[in-house]
Design a protein around this nucleic acid. Structure first.
Lengths: 135, 135
DNA sequence: CTGAATCCTTAAGGATACTG
DNA sequence: CAGTATCCTTAAGGATTCAG
């Protein structure tokens, strides 16, 4: 389904996450959300994953949130859900080619959070001290 | 580099956003949140900004959420808030050196959302069609 | 095993009014 | 101008139970 040249009414350059109702803002919100970053990251590192593995890997995620996150990402075309009708049933999630293009940007973000966390923690301490001495 | 002579209680490699209580997960959540991405993006493109400009630029943001987002980012050491006690008062927000290091990663993310939005919209349509025909 | 469905509690977020 | 404070509504999210 390469239906690419259908609606030409909306040129690419008009999409703007700074605009009120722009869908790019929604997408940005989806891919930047708490669990989505980690789901996409794990699928990027490991390849196809089962539901249970993801739940273990994303320590602390509830089944509800994991399912919800996976559905959103599937609907956005970032991952595919494959059911293997064995017994017991097996379901695997895997990045689509579109999802693959997010690996770089998201990896950069998670790595940033690890590499600069100490600076952030220091900044917080300094901020709290500075604002606490309101006497 | 092998961070040697500081607090050795917590080696850098131990921070992991996939772990339950890790602060890197919080930070990742902060910088990936709906309005923070846009605030940091605007400050990255434009430089120092006043409150009102940010509110206009981030179409649809409420004063409450903007203030809240700015406070969080300030506490994390990503931006500085400077008050000019003129009349009327003027307040400017600007990225810190630490905040600057986020420009690249976040720019990549917002650009992704613009460049691939059509693919996402197509995927959604296809998903909705596929799941709607449950008859 | 992989969820869907329900209930329930907390947090997010908008609207409005008011202050230095 | 740049917020703070308050109220209120909605949404997020956890816990639990049940089903294919």
């Amino acid at each position: 389904m390469v239906a690419s040249t259908q609606k030409v009414s909306e040129p690419t350059s008009s999409w703007d996450p700074y605009a009120r109702g722009c869908p790019s803002r929604d997408v940005l919100d989806h891919i930047g959300s708490k669990w989505a970053v980690l789901v996409l990251g794990e699928l990027g590192r490991h390849g196809a994953c089962r539901f249970t593995r993801l739940r273990q890997e994303l320590a602390g995620v509830s089944e509800k949130m994991l399912t919800q996150t996976l559905r959103t990402l599937e609907r956005d075309g970032l991952l595919v859900r494959t059911v293997y009708p064995e017994a017991p049933i097996r379901v695997e999630y895997e990045l689509t080619p579109l999802g693959q293009t997010l690996r770089g940007p998201l990896k950069a973000l998670t790595e940033w959070s690890v590499q600069h966390i100490e600076e952030v923690l220091d900044a917080r301490e300094e901020y709290d001290d500075r604002t606490a001495k309101r006497s």
